[in-house]
Amino acid sequence: AALSLAALPMRALAATDMVGEAITAFTGGADVGERGITLTAPEIAENGNTVPIEVDAPGAAAIMVLAAGNPNPDVGTFNFGPLAASQFASTRIRLAGTQDVIAIAKMADGSFVRASQEVKVTIGGCGG
C-alpha cells in the first residue's frame, strides 16, 4: 500500500464524446477497420507520467494516438514523410489512470484502421 497517490488507479474515463469527436475529426466519419496497425504498450505502466508506446502501420500516411481516459484524450499525431523508412514511431505519454490507449492510422488510400490496448495504472507495492 502507498501513502500518497499521483494518479488514482481506478479506471479513468474521458467524456466518450470527446474521444468520438477526436476520431471523427481525424477520419471525417469514415469506417475504421482493425487490421494493419499495431499498438504496443506495457500492460502495467511503471509510471503513469511516462508510459512508452509504439505504433506501427505499414503504408500509413499518419497515425493519431488518443488516451481514452485522460481529461483531454488528445496525445499526438505522427505524419510520415517520403523519407520515413517505416510507418513506425515510439514516444512516451501521460495517463491519468487505467484506460485504453487508441491508435488510428490513415492509410495511403484514405482508409482508416485502429488498435487499442488497456494500460493499467496502479499504486503498486507488495510482491513475492
Binding site: L8, E43, I123, C126
Partner: peptide, 25 residues
C-alpha cells in the same frame, strides 16, 4: 477501498500479464 481493489486486481486479474505475483495486502 481503492487500495484494496488495486492490490486485488494485481492478484486476481484473469490476464496473467496484469498480475504482479504477490499476495493480498
Amino acid at each position: 477501498h481503492t487500495i484494496l481493489e488495486d492490490v486485488a486486481d494485481n492478484l486476481f486479474n484473469p490476464d496473467p500479464y496484469y498480475q504482479q505475483g504477490g499476495d493480498m495486502v
